[in-house]
Design a protein around this nucleic acid. Sequence first.
DNA 1: CGGACGCTTGAGCACATTCAACAGACGTGG
DNA 2: CCACGTCTGTTGAATGTGCTCAAGCGTCCG
Lengths: 218, 218
Amino acid sequence: MMSGLDDDAVRNVLAASAVSSANDGEVVFVQGEPSDTLFMVLEGRLKISQLTDSGSQTVVRYLGPGEMAGCVAMGGLTHYPATASAVGASRVLRWSRRTLGELVERFPRLALNSLATISFRMEELQARFAELASERVEQRIARTVLRLIVQAGERVEGGIRIAIPLSRQDLADMTGTTLHTVSRTLSAWQDAGLVQIGRQQVTVVAVDGVAMIGNGGR
Amino acid sequence: MMSGLDDDAVRNVLAASAVSSANDGEVVFVQGEPSDTLFMVLEGRLKISQLTDSGSQTVVRYLGPGEMAGCVAMGGLTHYPATASAVGASRVLRWSRRTLGELVERFPRLALNSLATISFRMEELQARFAELASERVEQRIARTVLRLIVQAGERVEGGIRIAIPLSRQDLADMTGTTLHTVSRTLSAWQDAGLVQIGRQQVTVVAVDGVAMIGNGGR
DNA sequence: CGGACGCTTGAGCACATTCAACAGACGTGG
DNA sequence: CCACGTCTGTTGAATGTGCTCAAGCGTCCG
């Protein structure tokens, strides 16, 4: 978010922010509310999720330290398109839309950086959209797990652990399936020695094996 | 794209552009190529589509006059995430990445406008993603048709026609299904008096009926 | 006139959902 | 500390939506 700004500018931008804390599960902003604040994660994580009117949930992404949430406050959207809730004890920086307007005027670079962030996410979302449209469930789960180990992988003995409390339901909400199918799939993978699963956690033992499934190798 | 710019600025921005024509089906930019140009549709339409490595296609959206294509050239992406091809004889404005950099420096507002555009599309894509993840095929087709009549609806006797040559395959690529299912669905709708279908074209007779299906009323 | 293209329709099947029941882990409060 | 309720996860069986495979038809165009 701050890339391309000189130290002085960064100090100015930070000085204009406020800090908030959020406990595990606490909501930072809610889908449908007026989008009058931009956030940046300082500590912990945010889970960005979306609720359709029919009641089903989709998880759009997880955000870690340094990442922006509610970029739409800078773009033109008047309401948040999704809900952000804290995963574990977290801390975020906040800028009001007003403050933001002034900052962007002084440091136009901020707008460009947001643009870069959103472009990147847009590309990712398009890719996930295409996956969802054309690939089978097992493949999608594999790709999602791979993305998660990039985003939040943690080396442990015997593999790479996804350092987010991740329920079967969460994975289902990311891949557009049900927790049942996710459970079955992960169990099968464990039997095959690809992963090690536990309550709200997944450790990938054989990254190459999972990658193969993700690429269509059955 | 030009909103918030004064007349003089608009003249400057336009003066820096080049014009290209594209015949029906001709490709404007290709997925994976370096994204060194920003486009704006002047006449006709562009179809933005994406090809996965497994070979299946998804249609991301259609763009009409005044809309920007390849916004990523302004954001940070180095390669186009999708392919743009002309639908019918079309004309587009072009700005090179270099020119664009200079323009943005002089008129920072351009960056904000792009941000607004992408934010809007991001929101729409998120909504479609959620649809794809949670709704049945018929519902998704209904919603897609409704979106299309907003984007390219044309009042005709007996309904609203979608003024784009739209094959069953195209609709399938937008909804993540097969042309077979789309064909069956549209035929059923025609029997029910909801739409009037023809070769590469759809005319919605009963918008409310289609909307009901889109909202889950079976 | 012939071929390519877009579309329709039927039959069978497979993947994933739905329905259902249960098991274990965790947290809470008496 | 144990009893209880809640939350998360597992697994089986039945069901069904939508895909795949297959064949054929009409229309547009060279």
